[in-house]
Design a protein around this nucleic acid. Sequence first.
DNA 1: GAGCACTGC
Length: 763
Amino acid sequence: MAKALNGTKENPYLAHLPPDQRRTGSSTPPTVKEPLFGFLPRKVKGDQVRRAMEGDVNPFTKRPLSAQYKKILDSRKKLPVFTQMDEFYNTFSENQVIVMVGETGSGKTTQIPQFVAYSDLPHTKGKLIACTQPRRVAAMSVAKRVADEMDVQLGKHVGYSIRFEDMTEPGTTFLKYMTDGMLLREAMNDPELQRYSTIILDEAHERTLATDILMGLLKDVAKRRKDLKLIVMSATLDAMKFQKYFGNVSSKDSGSAPLFKVPGRTHPVEVFYTQEPEPDYVEAAIRTVLMIHRAEDPGDILLFLTGEEEIEDACRKIKAEADDLMNQDPEAVGPLTCIPLYSSLPPQQQQRIFDPAPPPRVEGGAPGRKVVVSTNIAETSLTIDGIVYVVDPGFSKQKVYNPRIRVESLLVSPISKASAQQRAGRAGRTRPGKCFRLYTEKDFMTELEEQTHPEILRSNLANTVLELVKLGIKDLVHFDYVDAPAPETLMRALELLNYLAALDDEGNLTALGSIMAEFPLDPQMSKMLIVSPEFNCSNEILTIVAMLSVPNVFIRPPNARREADLAKAALTVPDGDHLTLLNVFNSYKQNIHDKNWAWTNYLSARALAQADNVRTQLERIMERFDIELVTTQDQRKFYENIRKALVCGYFMQVAHKEGEKGSYLTVKDNQVVALHPSCGLETQPEWVIFNEFALTTRPYLRTVTEVRPEWLLEMAPSYFDLTTFPDGETKRALVRVQNKKMGKLPRAIDGQDQRAKKKQKKS
DNA sequence: GAGCACTGC
């Protein structure tokens, strides 16, 4: 039974004080101001909390509360969640798991964790409350806001934890905002998550890979740890699914976790559909933007398109046509600025979306208008105030995974209803707005999926499977997924991990696999990094891995392609793109004091700095496992050793040249591919390993390095076991290599191959 | 002779 904070022996609030300072056994009210007097952990009522919040002393720090605190408190009281505090405490006190629905503007992300703090009193027990976010910026900015609201310094009682930045103070921080991926990492080393009293999964409806895995883990942990509470916060449409999923955590629950619902605070948005389907959505979008500009009241426009090129193109066209309109009728049509927005834009240029709309061209003339043309980034990650009109063609680029050929690629696909709703909502942030959907109402009702498929169904799961095995989940097929991935996707992941020797034939984690899981990398990369000291090139592989983990460093402006290509050629290593990446990074470090070096060489300084950061992080992990950092002293072997180490990780991503036209076949999967035009190889070697299979205008291999076939046989004998290898030209080439290696004379191909050859001739 | 939706460890 929980005891109240009233000065009895069990008073956990005083446990940190020396015994003589504890007011034990006394029935007289405390002489010191104690804002949390009488608080029973997890039995707290709304009126108690409100009284504590209204006091003069910070209940958590015992310091006097500032005037700023009072001011923020007044604005907090106006939030919809705040008015439902009593209901929240009733639900929270009585249930281990609750699902909460809080629409945009309800204040759930900032308020609920604070409410929980008053109930859990985590600071008295050395525990923490965690609130996960899918994005780093959100974790950081919300933590800052909540620290202000609680009148504490960010990083003390309230902090955040994201990759590369831990803004928490052990022993002091009791409320921690963090990325979902970060909590998943923590779970790998503390599967019971003992540090936490309550875990809040925010934005669960986004269904990121990490949130989905956390839901499965936490459901299980909650069954074992009855003291752990969970709050799953989501948008309306998904709530029921989560309620059912968490329904059987406690035996007394009747198959459905309770729902706590808080309305949002947004303005109405009127939605319009087209009468007929639009054959060309970009053209229709441009037309609609111009129609709004001509005919609608002042207010900024947000247009959703799918990618960089499409956006830049549309911006040019909108600008040109809007200028025409204004010149034809300067009285009626105001000036228009068109601002592109996508993630690979430098942050400074992304800031332009917050610029005000242009003023009228002449005094008293038609007002100006701002049009933001954006990818999905404006759907969740970035909020632009002042948007009144949204134009939604109904498409976005989405990741899809094909386990059959093991290829992850981006495809332009129709969005979901939930996504369309989210987009429309962007028009109602500051005042009532309008949303123009460039598809018919019927298509909306019948063609669009309710929800975007969760990421777990659209991804290669090699990494996730390794993490799960490290977490002690043996039976991956029967893991309690919210949505189970395709069995074939799991099979592919297990197969890859087995070939990499991260898992043994029974699916158990090997010592190597255990170390691999510690690296925030794809298993192929952690494998080659771990084995690289054997080839005397761990310094170099570390750099290559870091470079492969950040966005493309090569910049190619449309108006300076030739110059950019020349700059790149000067840094190119002809044996392979991986080696070029190494060379670029080393040159960057050598010229680190020349601030213009990256710019003059058409390289992204931001991506290079990021690579440096990643490299440092990985280096620390290597140190922890005593993986040496070494460099080959024999210059003649320098590149060869690196290429051998690359094979140790990427032997399943090999292509063999077939014919003379530069066409390649991927080994075993037999996909016809070409080297990407950005590839820097000076010849077309017979054997290459590749980092990426890209499905764009046609299938391409990106980031390619030449390898020798005898290395394949040597480094990955089980994968290249010729007795089980599928017949074909690739196998015949490998047989020739093997025969030569074994000192045999070149001889006629064996019977099996004869048959294959005959078959090939026929077709 | 192309392009990189977005996020995360």
